[in-house]
Design a binder for these strands. Structure first.
Length: 280
DNA sequence: CATACGTCCTGCCAGC
DNA sequence: TGCTGGCAGGACGTAT
């Protein structure tokens, strides 16, 4: 569920509330969300201080003293919820707690995940570096240029949306922002990646970065499940122009937005703004 | 090697 | 009102 803007929002929020605190105790209520040995996970985290919190792609990354890294992959419905003091907002008591991190008598970090597609993994610095190296470039870094995108797209005849979703080629983009970026760039999602013209690649590059920046500024998209560590919903959902809007009017040309299934997943597009002769 | 599909899991919602 | 099928922001493993 959470894509780059949501992971970024979570990481920024945790910088304020969790950095500097020490993990006193770890409660694992759902063993299946832990990657690797649960005992090693709990022992390895106990007593460690949270030095920094960041993000890589869609992953929230905790750097701990001693060089260990806790990598949280949120899957579709994973949440990192922070609690000061006692109690939660009455309407958002976590109902699917998978892991709890006791930080102080009055501060707890919860990993909550309805569907449990998310994973938590404790890695040493070398293993983390190796993992990170397997992910594609960060789309918001200055080094991610239009030429870099062109190089990624030129290597494949697969539908351009599949490339955008492939974390080993480009990190952080999921189905919502892939659809939004392709709409903004006026490129049909099923177009073979290598078939995009130079101007189309340029538009897609700009669109990817613009939609991600705007979504971060809005603190992410909440369709249903996403919440930041303080239980806040993201504000970007009303600004989505095609995702989830089948049957409504295209905000650019007014014709009807269509949904189609591509590689088993919903794809939303405006058939007039994103012409795809033969791919529609 | 690259791409496509089924699978993991629970909850919600439309339609009957 | 209650049941059923379809669908969901992800990504892995296996088959082709």
């Amino acid at each position: 569920m959470p894509e780059l803007p949501e992971a970024e929002t979570i990481a920024r929020s945790l910088k304020d509330c969790a950095v500097g605190l020490t993990i006193r105790r770890v409660f694992v209520l759902r063993r299946d969300v832990i990657e690797g040995d649960v005992g090693r996970f709990r022992q390895g985290l106990r007593g460690r201080r949270i030095e920094r919190v960041g993000r890589r792609g869609k992953n929230v990354v905790f750097e701990l003293d001693g060089g260990m890294v806790l990598c949280v992959k949120l899957g579709m419905t994973g949440r990192l919820l922070f609690r000061y003091g006692l109690g939660w907002p009455a309407d958002s008591w976590p109902r699917h707690v998978a892991v709890g991190f006791h930080l102080r008598p009055d501060a707890t970090l919860i990993y909550d995940d309805v569907r449990r597609f998310g994973r938590l993994e404790l890695l040493d610095a070398a293993a983390w570096a190796e993992r990170s190296a397997r992910l594609g470039p960060e789309p918001l870094e200055a080094s991610f240029t239009a030429a870099a995108l062109a190089q990624i797209l030129a290597a494949s005849r697969a539908p351009v949306r599949s490339l955008l979703l492939d974390q080993t080629r480009l990190a952080g983009i999921g189905n919502i922002y892939a659809n939004e970026a392709l709409f903004a760039a006026r490129v049909h999602p099923a177009r073979p990646a290598a078939s995009l013209t130079r101007p189309e690649v340029g538009r897609l590059h700009r669109a990817i970065r613009a939609v991600l920046r705007r979504a971060i500024a809005a603190r992410g998209t909440t369709i249903r499940d996403y919440r930041d560590p303080n239980h806040g919903a993201g504000d970007f959902a009303p600004r989505l122009r095609v995702y989830g809007r089948e049957g409504s009017a295209c905000p650019r040309c007014g014709c009807t937005i269509k949904r189609l299934v591509l590689a088993g997943r919903s794809t939303f597009l405006c058939p007039r703004c994103q012409p795809g002769k033969g791919w529609a």
